[in-house]
């Protein structure tokens, strides 16, 4: 056996546990769900081929269209707001503050708290009667709304809650901010740039790779948002927080429509791929990687 082949086989043998796991628990279910998306399948009986029917039925399903609308709203607001908030927090934490390390840790803690616990915590915060938020608003003379009970406020509430979870992006931005060469700020100061101009013309361009990363990961996560709505509102009131994956889950596991749910999953996959490609394509115009000519 040629040494190269032997080395290759040895390498394969070492990574085979991962390959087997990847094929069995990722690729196989993935392909199976693609197949099921063209079938009528309820998890209890054999699937029946229906071609594109699940896909065409989706266009006539008003609840599906409502879920799409809710999800687009959530993505459109929560992702930019999340990136902006994370950047601002990271920027502040990058200053020479006392207790800087402690503050960084505090902002990261929500990430390691299970989402179910976070959801319960925020249900208390949002309670319109005795919740923290409305009590704070009352101090300045504002009568807070029924955050989770009102269809007008339920989505904004979940977006606000999402900002609680920006700790991961804060960390990424912090690392990026610390990579910005000091010399660039010095040069900008010599040229007479004030603090705002330094942020706008030096800091932000230098952290654009981190912005792209946060946008991408945030967007993918927001399209798949599930647990917070499932625990806090179960899609209500009047389906105002019925997000895409929540409706998908209900179809698959509560309404015996796994084929339909699989079609939904593949459409979501396609949308995420398209948006990701668009973001990558446009990034050439606004993302600056250090060292580029």
């Amino acid at each position: 056996m040629a040494p190269g082949t032997k080395r290759f086989l040895t390498m394969l043998a070492f990574i085979s546990p991962w390959i087997i796991g990847f094929l069995a628990f990722f690729v196989y279910p993935l392909l199976l769900s693609l197949y099921y998306s063209f079938t009528e399948y309820n998890l209890l009986q054999p699937s029946k081929w229906v071609g594109l029917q699940n896909y065409s039925n989706l266009t006539e399903d008003s609840h599906y269209l409502n879920a799409v609308g809710n999800t687009v709203y959530f993505v459109a607001f929560s992702v930019p707001l999340g990136v902006l908030t994370a950047f601002i927090i990271a920027f502040l934490l990058n200053q020479q503050l006392r207790l800087r390390v402690l503050l960084r840790m505090i902002f990261y803690i929500p990430i390691v708290v299970p989402i179910s616990a976070t959801a319960i915590l925020w249900m208390w915060i949002f309670n319109s009667n005795w919740g923290l938020l409305n009590n704070l608003l009352a101090l300045i003379g504002i009568q807070g709304p029924s955050w989770l009970g009102s269809p007008s406020w339920s989505k904004p509430s979940l977006i606000i809650m999402q900002l609680w979870l920006v700790g991961g992006s804060v960390l990424i931005f912090l690392a990026a901010l610390q990579d910005v060469p000091r010399a660039l700020y010095d040069a900008a100061m010599v040229d007479g740039a004030n603090a705002i101009r330094r942020v706008w013309h030096v800091t932000i361009p230098m952290v654009t790779p981190a912005i792209l990363f946060s946008l991408l990961t945030g967007m993918i996560a927001a399209f798949q948002t599930f647990a917070n709505a499932w625990i806090m509102t179960d899609g209500g009131p009047i389906r105002s927080t019925e997000f895409y994956v929540l409706y998908l889950y209900d179809n698959g596991f509560r309404f015996f429509r796994m084929g339909y749910a699989s079609a939904m999953a593949w459409i979501l996959f396609g949308v995420v791929v398209v948006v990701t490609v668009i973001l990558f394509r446009t990034s050439a115009g606004w993302v600056y990687y250090g060292g580029e000519g």
Partner: peptide, 13 residues
């Protein structure tokens, strides 16, 4: 409806 929703939300639904 909104007022009822507010009232019920304050009862934790």
């Amino acid at each position: 409806a909104e007022k009822i929703a507010e009232f019920k939300a304050s009862q934790e639904g």
